[in-house]
Design a protein around this nucleic acid. Structure first.
Lengths: 151, 151
DNA sequence: CACAACCATATTGTGCACAATTTAATTGCC
DNA sequence: GGCAATTAAATTGTGCACAATATGGTTGTG
């Protein structure tokens, strides 16, 4: 009954399944996003900005679970592409507000078909996609709560 | 009926849920793996080697879906830590076979409790974990097949 | 007002991922 | 045997992630 193996096995790990699935999906996005001139993390930032139109760096970080070490250089690249604008707030010079530039707004139309393509490639129906998303959000929240009890 | 939004929304994206869950789980692993002196990708490599004892770099790449650009420097770091050994095959000098060094074998015992901790932190029971793993593997395979048809 | 505590962002350094190229060895074909 | 095609790793360059630290601005307290 007891496993002969003296340790954890690669294929038993849910974490590896997660890791592999994430990389497969972002690899699928890559050629599609190439047409928009974006990387996948840049695409996520644009998604957040298209929805909110204006966000401080720390608000973006809260939405995407990313810190300034990741976001600062990424936002500079988006700025150089003229997709976003960054401006220090007049009433609090510590804070940088990020807004969508005209070229960034125009890009949104090209992003509309992406989720459809990716959803189809995943081979799940609407209900399964919904359940997977719910499960993953539960895992994320549960793991982050658990981490908070340690750190 | 039709969405008012003119584009995809961040929270609707299964891909973002995947991305967030993967990063949360690897962040949970990080302090645990610090005790073993490993990063998460290095841990995956050790998992594969503990199971197979000897693998060529391209076999390792097939198992983990990684290429030599990622694996070569990673394996050199593991070699410097004296956890693995790398040796060119005598009968085919192109191929590098990677084996577990004594210190790497000893490390396996310390890795045994990890999956239990992580499983618990995810807040899913055995059956749910199993289903999630199966779903994720299906997604990975389906997406990779889809990518292959694009070429 | 001075100044410590705090806050938001930026910078530095390490280690993945991955595309593209390079190097070196092997195989296939004549 | 000679030589093009193929194969396996390694290298180079870009862009995340993230820890640790630095920079500069703001707030609270005496």
């Amino acid at each position: 009954m007891a496993a002969q193996e003296a340790g954890p096995r690669l294929d038993d790990q849910v974490c590896f399944a997660l890791y592999a699935a994430t990389r497969a999906v972002t690899a699928l996005y890559r050629p599609l996003l190439d047409d928009l001139g974006l990387t996948y993390p840049q695409y996520l930032v644009m998604l957040a900005l298209w929805e909110h139109d204006e966000l401080a760096v720390n608000e973006l970080g809260r939405l995407l679970h990313l810190d300034s070490g990741t976001l600062s250089p990424l936002l500079k690249r988006l700025e150089k592409l003229e997709l976003v604008e960054r401006r220090r707030r007049a009433d609090d010079e510590r804070s940088v507000r990020v807004t969508v530039a005209p070229a960034g707004r125009a890009l949104r139309a090209k992003a509309v078909p992406l989720p459809g393509v990716v959803g189809e490639a995943m081979g799940l129906d609407e209900r399964q996609l919904d359940e997977l998303r719910r499960t993953l959000r539960g895992v994320t929240e549960s793991v982050n709560d658990y981490r908070a009890t340690l750190g």
